[in-house]
């Protein structure tokens, strides 16, 4: 498991897995999209509009997952002085920002026909908007310091402070009255979604994970190389 903390080992591991991950991302995305558009049924209430879910929900999960990973690596970077933690922070922040943006845009497109509005300031939507702003601040901070040592520490601390927002995003629909409905799948009991819709959702989630991994591997390798050659 050394590839999780050591840049050299990561490079070797990444070379092994890159091609399989790339291929499986293409295959999963093709299967997932065929399922989402043709093989999954219309919803009893929402009709065809429910297909937006197959993009909206995976991107929302990955936006949160990316931030959770950054939080763990920030703790590792600050507490155990593992430079790889800071490399991850710099590399994956834009990926999380894009997933959040996809989630917000697809959610708007879903909200207009179903709720009758593009956007409301309820707790769930507002906390996701804050998540997006936090991602943007991290990206700008990564670009704005002259001294790399200072920069990565400040960014890691900011990531930790911003992680307070994660449980708020997750539980906002349970804690407060929101226009956004509560979670469908987080329950430990039987999820309130039919298997014929659950299967495309799971396939699309893995497709998103694989695409995220492909971009992450490329960005982390670039970051390692530019640090070695002292470009930044």
């Amino acid at each position: 498991m050394k590839f999780l903390v050591n840049p050299g080992n990561f490079n070797k591991f990444a070379d092994y897995v890159f091609l399989p991950v790339l291929i499986s991302s293409i295959i999963l995305f093709s299967i997932g999209l065929i399922f989402a558009f043709y093989l999954s049924p219309d919803d009893y209430q929402q009709g065809s509009t429910v297909r937006i879910m197959y993009v909206h929900v995976p991107s929302a999960w990955l936006a949160l997952l990316t931030y959770a990973i950054m939080t763990l690596y920030s703790i590792a970077g600050l507490a155990f002085r593992i430079p790889f933690g800071f490399i991850i922070n710099t590399a994956v922040a834009p990926i999380g920002a894009v997933f959040t943006l996809i989630c917000i845009i697809s959610g708007s497109l879903w909200g207009k026909p179903m709720w009758g509005t593009w956007w409301v300031w309820d707790a769930r939507l507002t906390s996701v908007a804050i998540l997006f702003i936090i991602y943007l601040i991290i990206i700008f901070m990564n670009l704005s310091f002259e001294n790399r040592i200072v920069r990565e520490k400040v960014v890691a601390i900011f990531v930790l402070v911003g992680s307070i927002n994660l449980p708020i995003v997750k539980f906002s629909v349970d804690w407060w009255n929101t226009l956004h409905q509560p979670a469908t799948i987080s329950k430990l009991s039987k999820p309130s979604i039919d298997p014929s819709m659950m299967i495309p959702l799971i396939i699309m989630t893995f497709a998103f994970i694989m695409v995220g991994l492909v971009i992450a591997i490329l960005r982390i390798k670039t970051e390692i190389i530019s640090r070695k050659s002292n470009l930044i």
């Binding site: 049924p41 929402q46 509005t117």
Partner: peptide, 30 residues
């Protein structure tokens, strides 16, 4: 302003017809 709120349940439209046919359709779903 009126916004519709939908619940966290997702079900294929065909199952709604089956449930109606067999009389198991819960009116609360609408």
């Amino acid at each position: 302003n009126v916004f519709a709120k939908h619940d966290e349940n997702y079900m294929p439209a065909s199952i709604k017809e089956d449930l109606k046919d067999t009389g198991y359709w819960n009116k609360k779903y609408k």
